[in-house]
Design a protein around this nucleic acid. Sequence first.
DNA 1: TTCCACCCTCAAGCCTTTCTCAAAGTCGGG
DNA 2: CCCGACTTTGAGAAAGGCTTGAGGGTGGAA
Lengths: 228, 228
Amino acid sequence: MSEQGVRVLVVDDERSIRRFLKASLGSQFVIFEATNGEEALAAVIADRPDVILLDLGLPDMDGVEVTRRLREWTQIPIIIVSVREQEQDKIAALDAGADDYLTKPFGVGELMARLRSAIRRSAQAETDPVFRSGDLVVDLNQREVSVKGQPVSLTPTEYDLLRTFVKHAGKVLTHDQLLRAVWGTAYESETHMLQVNISNLRRKIEPDPLRPGYLITEPGVGYRLKVI
Amino acid sequence: MSEQGVRVLVVDDERSIRRFLKASLGSQFVIFEATNGEEALAAVIADRPDVILLDLGLPDMDGVEVTRRLREWTQIPIIIVSVREQEQDKIAALDAGADDYLTKPFGVGELMARLRSAIRRSAQAETDPVFRSGDLVVDLNQREVSVKGQPVSLTPTEYDLLRTFVKHAGKVLTHDQLLRAVWGTAYESETHMLQVNISNLRRKIEPDPLRPGYLITEPGVGYRLKVI
DNA sequence: TTCCACCCTCAAGCCTTTCTCAAAGTCGGG
DNA sequence: CCCGACTTTGAGAAAGGCTTGAGGGTGGAA
């Protein structure tokens, strides 16, 4: 979710507000809509949004109640967007588990900044998936690599190289791409250094370094990390 | 931190505001104070607050800059409290890494609700206060460390260092990260002090300091507290 | 077959990082 | 003021990583 395609669920019974939010946010985010509390609860399941914009004055259920129900099982960021500016309303919503409270009317810029803030927070709790291929496990969060359960210690260069492969697992990476990613733009033609490091990596992670099962050579092009 | 004793750092150059906040919040929270940006950065190291209330208009440094500097190494919740109500100010602060933005004057009830919200969020990311790995036990509440049941006495610096490791147990921490977390932003390049303290820590907690089992060196990167 | 381009491995030299011991400096309490 | 605990600085040794060079292998083209 870190980059594009952040999913925002807009919960409001007024069509005009939904339209407005969709128009303002649509270019940056993927928008889903719900018009009442029940729909909202269902949409969180169905649409798996990354953040929720929730109006308090819903026809069937109070927004605070929606918040409470959601917090029973999920920590998705909830930003309240409401006309109510009474302090008691804010306190009730925040204590029910809302992350933020914005009073209408509000600036679109501020709303987007608060969205980014909420997303940033929940994104950092997120972890990169652990890469697995056969007996090879690469955990980018822990910076840990293991083969058949045995931890393997890599030098910084080797790890950078392997990380680049994992980020594009299965895809062919050219020599240039790898050299740029690991050594920087100035080293584009130092293919020898790449070879040596590929070789060293293979010695550490391949069961039979002479017949690579993970780091495949694509002759004339580059290398590829095989996904098994 | 889940219950009592939540530590709040108030950063504001106006004495009256600090007094007001201390009076309003003092019964619920433990209040620390700073009157400018430099003090704030130092106080975060020294006082270890759980949340920061930050004014934007500081005499020596803009609050946005303080936010940016803090976000280089810590995720402590930052709530901006400012007279500036321009949307641009809010956007800038939130994008610099602030968690919330409150415009003066504000209701104490709302402030406290937003504080609770921020604390609730960071509390759920909190680590288990008692860390165990093999024969090593670190109790962050009691500030007690023991190996094989034998209590170990650490100097303040050594303990800070170990605590940082425990908070990110299993993860590789770079030299920079450790230096910033323990000594402050100004010491980023003093790797030698880090080495000496790692060495001293190992002598106290490792069965065989020459072959570390807990504090693992990740050459070229940093160190890691192994989870067994 | 021979040549050539490309790929691979090994290892030595150099450089940087890391570790430890120890001395010097700092600070607060008695 | 002195003492002890702690922190910081210093120096030398050890370990480890990076780069480079040399040499061998392979496969396709002439």
